[in-house]
């Protein structure tokens, strides 16, 4: 299965990024072989709808599961519609740790949006 973990740098041992839609990198990990690739999150600077765009990118990559710190309502809607399972980071500090924790069954699975939505950082106005 392809697993995606959000990270702050393009490395499996980099610090995780607690944001999904505006997370800096997606680390794609093959859970069978342990091979990994880093993808830049193209939605990171979107003026709005970052969550749904990032989620669509994840779906296009064929991911079966995503681990991040927060899933807003739009991201959740897209990922759930595409049957991508969502997990929270728990105490994982790196994508490698997150993959191991997921394999051990110790990551909490998300059943609904974990935040009320951010709408392009409008809070800054």
């Amino acid at each position: 299965m392809k697993l995606i973990v959000t990270a702050t740098a393009p490395d499996i041992d980099a610090a995780v990024d607690p944001r999904f839609g505006r997370g800096a990198y997606f680390i794609e990990i093959d859970t069978e072989t342990g091979q990994w690739h880093a993808h830049e999150n193209q939605a990171v600077n979107a003026s709005g709808g970052a969550g749904s765009q990032a989620a669509q990118a994840v779906v296009r990559q064929g991911a079966g599961a995503v681990v991040s710190g927060d899933f807003g309502p739009n991201a959740h809607l897209v990922l759930a519609a595409a049957d991508v399972r969502m997990y929270l980071l728990g105490t994982s500090k790196t994508p490698r740790e997150a993959a191991a924790a997921l394999a051990a069954g110790s990551l909490p699975e998300v059943s609904g949006p974990t935040s009320p939505g951010h709408h392009g950082g409008r809070g800054g106005q």
């Binding site: 979107a46 709005g48 709808g49 749904s52 765009q53 989620a55 669509q56 779906v59 739009n74 809607l77 897209v78 519609a81 595409a82 939505g117 709408h119």
Partner: peptide
């Protein structure tokens, strides 16, 4: 232009607030 629609296979999702 506002990323208010996502198409996933045959499912088309509308984000009305966007």
């Amino acid at each position: 232009q506002y990323h208010a629609i996502a198409v996933l296979g045959k499912k088309t999702l509308v984000f009305s607030q966007l």
